[in-house]
C-alpha cells in the first residue's frame, strides 16, 4: 500500500513541477527573446535555418509541427491567448484561409515587399510566399518525348489513355491545380478536364508523389503529375533504387505557350495575437533573405521567391519556365469548388 502511495506522490510532484504555468506574454517581456512558430513544413533544412536565426538574432525559435489545418484549428481555439507568432503553411490556399478566418495580421515590412514579388504575397500584406513549387509533368524518358507534351489540358487526349499517374484528390497540391484550372478555364471545362484525367489514369489514385514516379519507372504508366522538388529528393535519396527512378524521369513544364505552369508557394504570416510580433517579423524577413533562400533552393529543391537568388544548379538544369501569374489568393478562394468538382467526377 505504502509503495503505491509513494509512487503516486512522486508522479504528482513530477507533474506539478514540469507543468508550472509560464506566461507567454510575460516570457516575451523577460530577457530570453523568443518566437513561436506553428509550421506545416518539416524539412531538415528548415531546422538548420531556425538554428541559424537563433544564433544571429539571439531569439529562441519554438516550433509546433503539424498540418496547416490542425495548426489553424489550434490557433482558432486558443483565440486571443494563442502563443503562436508565425504560421507557416505549404500552400497559399491555407494562408488565404487563415487570413479569412482572421488568424493573421497585416505586416508592413519594406524588406518583405522587396524580397517577395507581388504575385507571391497577399495583396493586403497578411502573408508572404517563401518558396515556390511548380506542379509539372514528369515522363519516362525512354517512352515519351518532350514534343508529345504541351499542356495540362492535352493530357486528356486519347493517346494518354491508361498512361497517367496522379495521386488522390485529397491532396492539397491537386486541389490547388484544380483551383487554377477553374480560375483559368471556368468550372465546366475544369470538370471536363478532371473527368478526362480520371479516364486516362493508369490506376486508381493512391500513394505519394514519389510513388507515382516509381510507378512510371516500373511501367505502370508513362506520365505523372508531381511537384518538382520530389524529383530532386528522389535524385538525392539514400536509396540507390530511388535515385535510379529519379534518373529515368524527364521534367516537362506544361502550358509554356499559354498561361504558364501552375505554381504554388509555401509561405508565412504573423499571427493576429502574436505575443512576439517584432520577433515574428524579423523571423519571416530572415527566411526571405538571400542566405536563407539559397538554402531552401539547394537543400530542399524549392524555387526561391527572392528574385535576387538564383535557383540551385540542379533546378537550373531543369530549365527556366514561365509561371502562371494567377494570384495565389484565388487558389484558396476556389479550393472548395475544386474539391466539390473532384467528388462529382469521381476522382477519389
Amino acid at each position: 500500500m505504502n509503495k503505491y502511495l509513494i509512487a503516486l506522490v512522486h508522479i504528482g510532484c513530477f507533474l506539478l513541477t514540469s507543468c508550472m504555468p509560464q506566461s507567454n506574454k510575460e516570457k516575451a517581456q523577460g530577457q530570453q527573446q523568443e518566437v513561436n512558430v506553428y509550421t506545416h513544413r518539416h524539412y531538415a533544412p528548415d531546422q538548420e535555418l531556425f538554428t541559424q536565426f537563433e544564433k544571429e538574432f539571439g531569439i529562441k525559435v519554438n516550433v509546433v509541427n503539424a498540418s496547416a489545418d490542425e495548426l489553424m484549428l489550434k490557433m482558432e481555439n486558443e483565440g486571443a491567448q494563442s502563443p503562436a507568432d508565425v504560421l507557416i503553411t505549404v500552400d497559399a490556399g491555407r494562408l488565404q484561409r487563415a487570413k479569412e478566418k482572421a488568424l493573421l495580421q497585416i505586416i508592413n515590412s519594406e524588406i518583405l515587399t522587396n524580397n517577395v514579388p507581388g504575385h507571391l504575397r497577399d495583396v493586403d500584406g497578411y502573408w508572404f510566399g517563401l518558396t515556390k513549387r511548380s506542379r509539372v509533368i514528369v515522363y519516362a524518358k525512354d517512352r515519351v518525348t518532350q514534343d508529345q507534351l504541351s499542356t495540362y489540358e492535352a493530357l486528356t487526349e486519347d493517346q494518354w489513355m491508361g498512361k497517367i499517374l496522379i495521386r488522390s484528390s485529397g491532396n492539397i497540391y491537386n486541389q490547388s491545380l484544380m483551383a487554377s484550372m477553374i480560375a483559368n478555364l471556368g468550372e465546366e471545362v475544369a470538370a471536363q478536364w478532371a473527368a478526362g484525367i480520371l479516364r486516362n489514369m493508369a490506376r486508381s489514385p493512391k500513394g505519394s508523389d514519389r510513388d507515382q514516379m516509381k510507378a512510371v519507372a516500373a511501367g505502370v504508366g508513362d506520365l505523372a503529375i508531381v511537384n518538382t522538388y520530389y524529383v530532386g529528393k528522389l535524385l538525392t535519396s539514400p536509396d540507390s533504387l530511388e535515385r535510379a527512378v529519379g534518373q529515368q524521369m524527364g521534367i516537362f513544364f506544361p502550358n509554356q505557350k499559354g498561361r504558364g505552369t501552375h505554381i504554388n508557394v509555401s509561405g508565412a504570416g504573423v499571427a493576429k495575437y502574436a505575443p512576439n510580433k517584432a520577433n515574428a517579423i524579423k523571423f519571416i524577413e530572415f527566411l526571405s533573405s538571400e542566405a536563407a533562400q539559397e538554402i531552401f533552393s539547394s537543400s530542399n529543391f524549392e524555387y526561391p521567391v527572392n528574385p535576387k537568388v538564383n535557383p540551385s544548379p540542379l533546378l537550373q538544369s531543369w530549365g527556366i519556365f514561365k509561371e502562371d501569374k494567377l494570384s495565389l489568393s484565388t487558389l484558396g478562394a476556389l479550393n472548395k469548388s475544386a474539391v466539390l468538382l473532384f467528388d462529382q467526377v469521381g476522382w477519389k
Binding site: 489545418d69 488522390s168 485529397g170 474539391v339
Partner: peptide, 20 residues
C-alpha cells in the same frame, strides 16, 4: 489514405479540411 482507400473517416477529414 496512403493506400487510396476512402473510408468513413476520409469523409470526416474531407468535410473538415477540404470543404472547410
Amino acid at each position: 489514405y496512403y493506400y487510396g482507400v476512402s473510408t468513413y473517416t476520409t469523409a470526416i477529414f474531407r468535410s473538415w479540411f477540404a470543404l472547410e
